[in-house]
Amino acid sequence: MDTLEVVAAYERASGVGVYRADTNHPRLRKIESPEHLQHIQQAVESGDSDIFAQGPTSSSIDAAVAPVPGSDAIGHFRRWAVSGETSTLRANAVSILGFLPGRENADVVVSVLETDAVVRRLCLASEVSRLTQCAWDVALAVADDPAGAPEPRRLATKLAKEAVDPKDTEARWCAGYLLQRMAVVLGPES
């Protein structure tokens, strides 16, 4: 079974979209081989956060990791989201927790997004970049000033779909945050 087949199997089991667009971040981490996927999964279970601290993780990594963590791994993600050494680690942990079921995971995601401004900015930019496929610097600018988004109606349409996604707490929170701040430029259509 090749990597794509493995990830597709995880997608079927979890409902997480492996074919979901990725961000345009220059350091995006992707699955390189079946062995790399196995290494990532073993690292998660053992508490090794290195892969999640190196750069943003791709949707395929998130889809492959989210449906399989044991209770130790979930504990690692919760700890990394709150007190990980780097903002990249914290943001990646929030992203994974966003896909996991349960109120405790959702509460951690919301708490971090409400209190950690650096992680919030990274998560917002990731959402914008993923939905619009814009350059990373543009996505960061929109995270800083959502009212200044290029093509705000197009982005708002995509965010509205994310705001009701029952399988991704992070996407729902970020979509609501961005839509609220974009309302001043969206206003009623003429």
Rank of each mutant, 00 (worst) to 15 (best):
22 D>I: 01
1 M>W: 04
77 F>A: 03
92 N>G: 00
144 D>Q: 08
18 V>Y: 14
185 V>R: 15
121 R>A: 07
170 E>L: 09
50 D>Y: 07
32 E>A: 07
23 T>S: 07
125 A>V: 02
54 Q>D: 11
53 A>F: 03
61 I>R: 04
152 P>G: 08
172 R>K: 14
140 L>A: 00
190 S>E: 15
172 R>I: 10
157 T>P: 08
86 T>S: 15
31 I>R: 02
109 V>F: 05
175 A>P: 09
99 F>G: 00
104 E>P: 06
155 L>E: 13
99 F>R: 09
75 G>C: 08
71 S>T: 06
16 V>L: 08
126 S>I: 00
152 P>Y: 07
107 D>W: 00
104 E>I: 00
32 E>S: 01
22 D>R: 04
163 A>I: 07
89 L>R: 10
135 A>K: 10
89 L>W: 02
161 K>W: 13
110 V>I: 11
2 D>H: 12
158 K>Y: 14
173 W>I: 13
10 Y>H: 14
131 L>V: 05
17 G>R: 11
48 D>I: 02
161 K>G: 08
52 F>P: 02
14 S>P: 00
179 L>W: 12
14 S>Y: 00
82 V>A: 07
113 L>D: 06
117 A>Y: 01
162 E>I: 09
50 D>A: 12
19 Y>E: 15
132 T>R: 06
164 V>H: 10
130 R>Q: 06
171 A>N: 04
186 L>E: 05
10 Y>A: 15
83 S>H: 12
19 Y>H: 15
188 P>I: 14
89 L>K: 06
76 H>D: 02
123 C>K: 05
155 L>N: 13
24 N>Y: 06
61 I>T: 10
130 R>S: 06
90 R>E: 04
143 A>P: 07
118 V>A: 07
177 Y>E: 15
83 S>P: 03
110 V>L: 12
125 A>L: 02
184 V>K: 14
120 R>V: 03
26 P>M: 05
2 D>I: 10
140 L>S: 07
50 D>M: 10
73 A>E: 08
43 A>V: 00
46 S>Y: 11
144 D>M: 01
115 T>M: 12
98 G>Q: 09
95 S>F: 12
41 Q>E: 11
121 R>P: 08
139 A>K: 03
50 D>S: 11
187 G>Q: 15
167 K>G: 10
12 R>D: 14
99 F>W: 05
123 C>W: 02
38 Q>F: 13
67 P>G: 08
39 H>A: 15
54 Q>E: 14
92 N>E: 04
30 K>W: 00
123 C>P: 00
93 A>R: 04
181 R>I: 15
114 E>F: 07
21 A>T: 03
26 P>S: 05
162 E>L: 15
11 E>N: 05
114 E>Y: 08
14 S>C: 00
21 A>H: 10
165 D>F: 15
62 D>L: 14
133 Q>K: 03
189 E>A: 10
20 R>H: 12
40 I>S: 05
106 A>T: 04
59 S>L: 09
105 N>V: 01
160 A>V: 00
2 D>G: 09
173 W>R: 12
41 Q>T: 03
123 C>H: 05
7 V>L: 01
